[in-house]
């Protein structure tokens, strides 16, 4: 059974259909990408998949569980974690605290244990630290654990956002333009990391990306959107040959680096 099952997802803003009848059936361990020109509705889909925008129509099932009507934090707790196109870190907190913040819902020490700092609470904090450091080391950030997040270089901030999302132990990870604004070497590095996440850790991932040379080699499937509608779906090889996609790229003023 699919881990994420999305049917007929649609949303309107003031009468304008931003996304229309989006369907997706994602298997566990799959890595797919959603591509399309600017304003095609890619981020809007992510916003619906994380509960930020309530869709005007359609259903979202995660692991057979209906998520519609829940609040964003409940989507996250249910197992959909995301990163943001415009980085949204907790900028005045340290790198490790940024990661630990994503664990809030799973921590179970109560308020009084916390303000009294009981030995049990300290032990849990220590374990949490270890876990966070472990995740940070996957992305080469463990050395900067105590740096304030806003002082990190741009590329590292993007990586930190992914680590933070991983802390939620998500069933599905949504990456919104993870290589936006990165230089080529960083781009290859990120491609390697995303591939590793899927291969070594079995992470299910949906990507939004403009950089075709980043997406094509690593994903299993691509969904192409234009004006809120799915215009094509298939393997990277199939997509590259699809005339509708080429039309959208050329006709729609696609500014990606294909």
């Amino acid at each position: 059974m699919a881990i994420l099952e999305v049917k007929n997802l649609s949303i309107e803003f003031g009468g304008l259909k931003a996304v229309e009848d989006f369907n997706l059936s994602l298997e566990k361990g799959e890595l797919i990408a959603i591509i399309g020109p600017n304003g095609a509705g890619k981020t809007t889909i992510f916003n619906m998949l994380t509960g930020i925008y309530p869709p005007s129509n359609g259903t979202i099932h995660l692991d057979g569980e209906n998520l519609l009507g829940r609040k964003p934090f409940q989507f996250a707790q249910a197992g959909i974690a995301r990163t943001f196109q415009n980085i949204r870190l907790f900028s005045n907190a340290s790198v490790i605290d940024n990661v630990k913040m994503a664990n809030t819902a799973d921590s179970n020490e109560n308020f009084f244990e916390s303000i009294l700092r009981t030995p049990g609470m300290v032990e849990k904090e220590r374990q949490l630290d270890e876990h966070a450091l472990e995740l940070l080391s996957l992305f080469g950030l463990e050395g900067q654990a105590d740096t304030i997040a806003k002082n990190l270089p741009y590329g590292a901030q993007r990586r930190l956002e992914i680590v933070r999302a991983l802390m939620l132990n998500p069933k599905v990870l949504l990456l919104d333009e993870p290589v936006a604004g990165m230089i080529t070497t960083e781009l290859d590095e990120m491609a390697q990391l995303v591939k590793e996440l899927r291969e070594k850790h079995g992470q299910t991932i949906i990507l939004i990306e403009h950089h075709m040379n980043f997406v094509m080699p690593i994903v299993d499937r691509i969904i192409v959107l234009n004006f809120g509608k799915t215009i094509s779906e298939g393997t990277p090889a199939e997509i590259q040959k699809d005339p509708r996609v080429i039309e959208a790229y050329l006709g729609g003023g696609f500014h990606g680096n294909a």
């Binding site: 996250a76 974690a81 949204r88 819902a105």
Partner: peptide, 10 residues
């Protein structure tokens, strides 16, 4: 620091 991100982090 970022209420939207806090929400998205559960």
């Amino acid at each position: 620091d970022n209420e939207i991100a806090a929400d998205a982090m559960g």
